[in-house]
């Protein structure tokens, strides 16, 4: 009897952790999509992507602050829904523009340079954004506005935070919508064509530069949403909050198969759940899961779970 109870307890805890992992993994997926899309088109690992995610969190913080929902000293008031909508729109738009700007200023001039040059530039842009973030936002931790009051929602034997549910639903809608967009629309076909062969895509009448800009805009918008969702769940903003998220989302993209959007989603979820499950046993090791996963993938199947081997461009 005692044993049964304990094992039941263990199962419930495992389920609980899986649920938390799905929420965490959904954000990894949102951010991973940006890595995977840019890599698919340019074969570039856009290290600045994690900082766009950070900007997304900050850009969704400011509208509430500007409108007086972050009074100094006093208790934070609940933010009305329209301000939440405003913050969402502002963060998404501003990050999409930032992503396009980064591509235009930093990567496009290097389009025909060696890949290493672009890669180093990406690292440079990332460092620049982090430091610019420290200058503009200051390095002190900012507390996120009360867009949503956290409550616990019972779900069978477990209970999940309402923010976790919001995260999962929003991420699923966005990644699913993006997948449909890329697979079903004319613009999506142009993106896929560019990712295979830009020169021929150009011969089809595709404006390659515009398509690449769009890729950055979409990826950055998704990262912005990721930043906003995470900040609702863990309401602490710092200019370096993108570092670990970026690394993990990148691992998620590689794990799922870089270049593949469903792969990014799958990789994100797997990583989130794995981290949470390991976290039940030992929280210190949770962060290491991503890196162990990266090493294993690179050893066993470098193209990732859903990736195609030998997609190297000719």
């Amino acid at each position: 009897m005692q044993l049964l109870l304990e094992s039941g307890d263990f199962l419930a805890r495992l389920l609980q952790q899986c649920a938390n992992g799905v929420a965490k993994g959904s954000v990894y997926a949102l951010v991973a999509v940006g890595y995977t899309m840019v890599y698919g088109v340019l074969q570039l690992i856009n290290f600045a992507h994690s900082d766009v995610y950070m900007l997304g969190a900050y850009f969704s913080y400011y509208p509430a602050r500007w409108l007086g929902y972050m009074p100094d000293g006093a208790e934070k008031p609940k933010v009305p829904l329209y301000v939440l909508g405003l913050a969402f729109a502002f963060a998404v738009t501003a990050c999409a523009c930032t992503g396009m700007l980064i591509e235009r200023l930093a990567y496009r001039p290097l389009r025909n340079a060696s890949r290493l040059a672009a890669l180093i530039t990406a690292i440079g842009v990332s460092i620049f954004l982090q430091n610019a973030g420290q200058m503009v936002f200051t390095s002190e931790v900012k507390s996120f506005p009360r867009y949503v009051d956290q409550t616990s929602v019972p779900l069978g034997p477990i209970a999940v935070a309402n923010t976790s549910l919001i995260i999962v639903v929003v991420a699923a809608l966005m990644v699913g919508g993006l997948h449909l967009f890329v697979q079903r629309t004319r613009t999506g076909a142009a993106m896929r064509a560019c990712s295979h062969d830009m020169r021929t895509a150009r011969l089809m009448g595709v404006n390659v530069n515009a398509t690449i800009s769009l890729t950055f805009a979409i990826g950055s918008a998704m990262a912005a949403v990721g930043g906003m969702l995470i900040a609702m769940d863990q309401p602490r903003l710092t200019p370096t909050m993108g570092l670990l998220m970026g690394l993990k989302a990148f691992v998620a993209a590689v794990l799922g198969g870089i270049g593949s959007i469903p792969g990014a989603a799958l990789g994100g979820l797997l990583l989130g759940v794995a981290e949470s499950v390991v976290g039940t046993w030992n929280t210190t090791y949770a962060d290491a899961v991503a890196f162990v996963a990266l090493i294993v993938v690179l050893l066993v199947k470098p193209s990732g779970i859903l990736g195609k081997a030998g997609r190297e461009k000719v």
């Binding site: 076909a189 142009a190 896929r192 064509a193 295979h196 062969d197 020169r199 011969l203 009448g205 595709v206």
Partner: peptide, 21 residues
């Protein structure tokens, strides 16, 4: 183009529709 420039991951119909982009 030389070498035909077919997009291998796109279906025949998607390839054709790109021609009409």
């Amino acid at each position: 183009p030389e070498g035909r420039g077919i997009f291998p991951n796109l279906t025949v119909e998607e390839n054709l529709m790109l021609g009409a982009y």
